[in-house]
């Protein structure tokens, strides 16, 4: 099962190395990790999308993360009301003929063209990973020359439903 885990960490030297090293050593499958500063100085926020086989593995993962000296808080937010977003930059081959066609494809995704050259277009898309996946699939026939994704970053919505309901979000 895929889970979204967030961790609040003290921004000390080597923290990313320590955490990714632990995940690797303990053979956890990581789909993506994103890291950046948080609202508090000196504190970073990490978002992991992980694939775990069962509850026991999941519990181990959160415990091993929590055990790290620099990790202040770990939350599994998969089943909460959350906003989760990923950014992708996609460079596709395009001629003057295909350009408007591509524009038509990306429009419903609210993606934008951020760079144009004679034979390519750079597209920026933000959204849930499945939306990003869908766009990539549609663009593939045009020839993807370069692709880079940031990995998911996420947090809880301001309002949580009273009864915890399974989140419709698929990662």
């Amino acid at each position: 099962m895929k889970r979204i885990i967030t961790a609040t960490v003290q921004n000390r030297g080597g923290v990313l190395n320590r955490i990714t090293g632990m995940l690797h050593k303990r053979q956890f499958n990581i789909d993506s990790i994103s890291v950046g500063s948080s609202e508090i100085e000196g504190i970073s926020k990490m978002t992991f999308v992980v694939e775990v086989s069962d509850r026991q593995k999941l519990e181990q993962l959160t415990k091993q993360l929590n055990k790290q000296i620099d990790v202040i808080k770990v939350s599994d937010i998969t089943e909460k009301a959350i906003v989760a977003r990923e950014l992708a930059l996609i460079k596709v081959g395009s001629s003057s003929q295909s350009r408007s066609e591509i524009q038509g494809i990306i429009q419903p995704f609210r993606a934008s063209i951020i760079d144009v050259s004679r034979d390519s277009l750079a597209i920026q898309v933000t959204g849930k990973p499945d939306k990003v996946d869908a766009l990539i699939t549609l663009l593939r026939p045009y020839g993807i020359k370069e692709l880079t994704r940031t990995g998911v970053t996420a947090f809880l919505r301001g309002q949580q439903p009273q009864v915890s309901e399974m989140n419709a979000f698929t990662v």
Partner: peptide, 16 residues
């Protein structure tokens, strides 16, 4: 030595 010892220490530091 920080890189080498990260997986085998409870914690490690380099004094800056």
């Amino acid at each position: 030595i920080l890189g080498i010892t990260t997986p085998i220490t409870k914690y490690n530091y380099q004094v800056k």
